[in-house]
Amino acid sequence: MANWTAFGILSRRGRTTVVGTATSDSKARPMFSRSRTCLVALGALLLSACAAGGSIAQGQPKPDWNLADMPSQNGRIFLVTGGTSGIGYESAKALAAAGAQVVIAARNPERGEEAIASIREETPDARVRFESLDLADLASVHALAERLTAALPRLDGLINNAGIMEPPERGTSADGFEMQFAVNYLGHFALTEELLPLLQKADAPRVVTLSSIAARLGAIHFQDLQFEQDYDPAGAYQQSKLACLMFALELQRRSDAAGWGIQSIASHPGVSRTNLQVNNGFVRRSIGRFVLQPAARGALPTLYAITAPDARGGSYYGPTGMMELRGSLGFAQVPAAATDAQAIARLWSVSEELSGTRYPSRIAD
Rank of each mutant, 00 (worst) to 15 (best):
M1Y: 12
A2G: 15
T5I: 13
T5F: 07
A6P: 15
G8L: 05
R13L: 15
R15W: 15
R15F: 14
V18C: 14
S24D: 15
D25A: 08
P30Q: 02
M31G: 13
S33C: 12
S35Q: 14
A41L: 13
L42E: 10
L42W: 11
A49V: 06
G54W: 11
D64T: 10
N66A: 09
D69T: 06
S72M: 03
N74S: 15
E90W: 07
E90F: 07
A92I: 08
A94R: 02
L95M: 03
A100Q: 01
V102S: 06
A106Q: 06
N108S: 09
E110G: 15
I116S: 02
T123G: 05
R127Y: 12
R129T: 10
F130Y: 00
A139W: 12
R147M: 08
A150K: 12
A150F: 13
D156A: 02
N161W: 00
G163L: 05
I164K: 03
P168S: 12
P168R: 09
T172L: 10
T172F: 09
S173P: 00
A174S: 10
E178V: 06
E178C: 05
M179E: 11
M179N: 14
A190V: 00
P197D: 05
D203A: 11
V208S: 03
S212T: 02
L217Y: 08
I220V: 08
L225I: 09
L225N: 00
F227C: 08
Q229D: 12
A234V: 15
A234G: 11
G235M: 01
A236C: 01
Q239H: 05
L242V: 00
L245E: 01
M246S: 02
M246A: 06
L249S: 06
Q252H: 00
R253G: 12
R254M: 02
A257I: 07
G259D: 05
W260L: 01
G261R: 04
I262G: 07
S264L: 06
I265N: 07
H268W: 02
H268V: 06
R273W: 10
Q277V: 14
Q277I: 13
N279A: 07
N280G: 14
R284I: 15
G288I: 08
L292P: 12
A308H: 07
P309L: 04
G313V: 03
Y317S: 00
G318A: 01
G321H: 00
L325S: 09
G327K: 01
G330P: 01
F331C: 03
V334M: 01
D340Y: 06
Q342L: 15
I344S: 09
L347V: 08
V350I: 10
S351Y: 04
E353C: 10
R358C: 11
R358V: 13
P360V: 05
R362V: 14
I363A: 03
A364T: 12
D365N: 14
